[in-house]
Nucleic acid binder design. Structure first.
Length: 231
DNA sequence: GCGACAG
DNA sequence: ATCTTGTCGC
């Protein structure tokens, strides 16, 4: 798939924040997505190895709404940027871009294991990546970076607004009754309601979307070495 | 100065 | 994220 990196990653944390402020206005958060026209969804995840200083990114493509794996790609790259809350994309995007470029399936949407615009400068990894590709991106994180919210109802599908500095930047969604909720936010080229519906459609059985689960296990396999089973 | 802080 | 055994709970 086509990926257009808009800049390099050899920046200081200070420069990275300035770049986020410059790029954030380009995010489109009002584009509806018709689930009926979606054929393939991709999940992206990164596994890091401090010992070797390497990052292993994987992209797993699932058919929709069946959610069966149809393609898997992996890419390794050195970790040149430290983990700094709010600057995660500068650390993980290099390997993610490498893996995405090898994807051949015509993906209709990408779900990232990170935040979208639910970010201090409205440019979490899902949004940042969304500016590099032409397809819609969604952020589905396991924990909160910014924003206040009320605990959503205990039943599956229950959700509440994630509000930061007076703005609704995402939704706290209960994908399964009884489990802790996930934090869904717009990546790029999609609206919040569509993003939430997509995440729920991809998580019919577990807390995390099938896309995230498959990408996560594939990334761990790649890091451990036994990444023999990739289509 | 103190607390918070995606992965 | 990663380091790690057993263990509490549905």
């Amino acid at each position: 798939m086509r990926v257009e990196e808009l800049h390099g990653y050899r920046l200081s944390p200070r420069e990275a924040r300035e770049l986020q402020v410059e790029l954030a206005p380009r995010v489109e958060a009002d584009v509806p997505l018709d689930p009926g026209s979606l054929e393939y969804v991709a999940g992206v995840d990164v596994s890091t190895e401090a010992r070797s200083g390497m990052a292993y990114a994987t992209v797993v493509v699932l058919d929709f709404p069946g959610l069966e794996v149809v393609e898997e790609r992996g890419f390794a790259a050195p970790l040149d940027f430290p983990y700094v809350p709010g600057l995660l994309s500068f650390r993980e995007l290099p390997p993610v871009v490498g893996a995405l470029r090898e994807v051949e399936t015509p993906v209709g949407a990408i779900i990232c294991d990170a935040q979208g615009i639910a970010h201090p400068r409205r440019l979490g990894l899902a949004s940042h990546l969304g500016l590099f590709v032409e397809v819609p991106t969604v952020g589905c994180a396991k924990s909160r970076l910014v924003g206040d919210f009320e605990e959503p109802g205990r039943e599956k599908g229950s959700a509440t607004d994630l509000v930061d500095r007076g703005e609704v930047v995402g939704r706290v969604v209960r994908t399964r009754s009884g489990v802790s909720p996930v934090y869904v936010s717009v990546g790029n080229r999609i609206d919040l309601d569509s993003a939430v519906r997509l995440v729920l459609a991809c998580a019919p059985k577990y807390r995390l979307p099938e896309t995230t689960r498959r990408a996560h296990e594939a990334a761990n396999r790649l890091r451990r070495g036994d990444a023999g089973t990739l289509l």
